[in-house]
């Protein structure tokens, strides 16, 4: 790999070429510099993390900051462990997870079918697009209180917030995915007298799948944000509620422990979406 060069395929100057470059001459600098593989390269990132944790511990223990401002990492671990062992982490985590997954399911389903309709039907596209664009311009955080008023401070309002937050990116992805399908493949299905259902199942869905699954990774993390936003506004359970509660009682270790759990949740969902992509898109490898 070392020293491999990637000359440009096209010799013509293109938009975005750097001004100094002579047109027509292939650029012989690597697009991505590659490094030689060494066995200890995987230790580098963990080492940095360990150093930061040690410095944080020293700073917190030195007494410069009160523990409700900067609790030591060991305090956070202890707090996390106490929450985990008395079951409250599980309980609050489960609530947030339920909101996140229900919101994802509803938001993605709605976005997919509406996107499909808009991509296929011109009347639907012209009628709905202005409203969808306008709706997208509203910051979800700003309407969260409204949704709480309308749907109560229980799980329903959070599910709706999650659904709304994943809806627009997924909608755009679906439309792009459907419109990117090669017209020649549509002709082929047409020539083979495929029914609309067959065209959907054998052409439209698989052709759009890469874009849909790429969007799912983004949506999964967005959905976690949606749940926390909702729980911040008003809730009696959930990891967002736990963060709010910790802040109110100056239990900063609790805040950090809950944030840690939330990001682990988001990362896990991202990982699952990546795994799904890996399994379903084996033909791209």
């Amino acid at each position: 790999m070392d020293g491999k060069v990637f000359p440009h395929r096209h010799a013509e100057p293109r938009i975005g070429d750097r001004p100094g470059e002579a047109a027509g001459r292939p650029r012989l600098t690597p697009v991505f510099p590659r490094f030689r593989m060494v066995w200890w390269q995987f230790l580098l990132a963990p080492s940095l993390g360990a150093i930061i944790l040690v410095l944080w511990e020293i700073l917190a223990r030195s007494g410069v900051y009160a523990s409700f401002i900067l609790p030591a990492p060991t305090d956070v671990v202890e707090r996390w462990w106490s929450l985990a062992s008395d079951g409250s982490l599980m309980r609050h985590g489960a609530v947030t997870l339920r909101e996140v997954l229900s919101g994802l399911l509803i938001g993605l389903t709605a976005a997919f079918w509406l996107g499909y309709l808009i991509a296929k039907n011109r009347i639907a596209a012209y009628t709905l697009t202005p409203y969808l664009v306008a709706l997208q311009a509203i910051p979800i955080v700003a309407i969260a209180p409204l949704l709480i008023i309308w749907f109560g401070s229980g799980i329903a309002s959070k599910v709706i917030i999650c659904a709304l937050i994943v809806f627009f990116p997924a909608l755009v992805n679906t439309i792009i995915g459907m419109r990117n399908i090669a017209p020649e493949l549509r002709d082929l299905m047409h020539a083979l007298e495929a029914t609309p259902l067959q065209t959907f199942w054998h052409l439209e869905l698989p052709a759009a799948l890469p874009i849909l699954l790429g969007g799912l990774k983004v949506s999964a993390t967005l959905s976690v944000i949606g749940a926390v936003v909702g729980e911040f506004v008003s809730a009696s359970e959930g990891l967002g509620y736990l963060i709010n509660f910790g802040r109110g009682t100056y239990d900063t270790a609790l805040v950090i422990a809950a944030v840690y759990t939330l990001s682990t949740l988001a990362l896990t969902l991202y990982g699952l979406a990546s795994l799904l992509e890996y399994i379903l898109l084996d033909w791209q490898r």
Binding site: D187, L188, H190, A191, A207
Partner: peptide
Amino acid sequence: QPQRRIGIVFQKANLMPWRT
């Protein structure tokens, strides 16, 4: 409208990349 009794091959092979 198109008929199965008529087969057509285009300039591009036009295969489905997700199918073997």
